[in-house]
Amino acid sequence: MKEVGSKKFSFSKILMYGFLTLASLLSLFPFYWMFVMATRPSAAYNSIPPTLTPGNMLVENFQKVLQQIDFFGAMWNSLILCVVVTIVVLLISSLAGFAFAKFKFPGKNILFIAILLTMIIPPQLGLIPQYFLIAKAGLLDTLQGVMILSFLNPLGIFLMRQYISGSISDELIEAAKLDGASNFKIYWKIVLPIILPAFATLGIIVFTSVWGEFLWQFTVLRDPEMYTIQVALASLNNTFKVDYGMLMSGVFWATIPLVIIFLLFNKLFIASITEGAVKS
């Protein structure tokens, strides 16, 4: 490595930058191409060689999307779903993580291991009874029906326990207790402010996974009015002859907010992956 660095234009250096640049281009190309297709008529798809420059149908194609699906309604449904699930998971995980990290009670370790064990159950095992359960409760075609399963997040409890035992000393908790603070007050006034950075990473993990989840949303939501953006987008491809310009316009506008958020907070996104991985 050092030998390589010392020479200015060595072969392996060119190879290295070439490989990385190719990987970057291949990663970016589908994003760019989706944009190109979103600005072109469907007929552009038949040209050889393929069209690689944007056209002028950005607005028109999006209008066609709006005729097919309730795009903004679906985006709103997804947003509500993700925001509620993220807040609930953060609260459940931090409360449980606090208890597992700082409290003593009989059966604590067994309960913690039980939570970790639920991680290895594949979600498909309960799918059918869960569907009938949600149907019985009258929650088909509702966001509540989609949410309830996502509230279960064993990884969140695990990460919060790790973070709280690592960042909050027992002395601090004891001191607060001596001052007469209740457990909930300690959680609210002392623990929460300290673990806010961990909320950011766990929040990103939860938000993105719920945003992109498909199988359960596809199973529970059948009424187009209640579609989340994933189910709505999938429905665009469900006709015999698909208008590619319209299809890519839908995907483009649904993806662009995520891309912007990612580019603004990319360090946080990448940290959320490594933190989850390194800790487990």
Binding site: S27, L28, P30, F31, T208, W211, G212, F214, Q230, L233, A234, A254, T255, L258, V259, F262, F269, I273
Partner: peptide, 8 residues
């Protein structure tokens, strides 16, 4: 970046 796009 591809990881942030949804599977759909």
């Amino acid at each position: 970046m591809p990881y942030i796009t949804s599977m759909v």
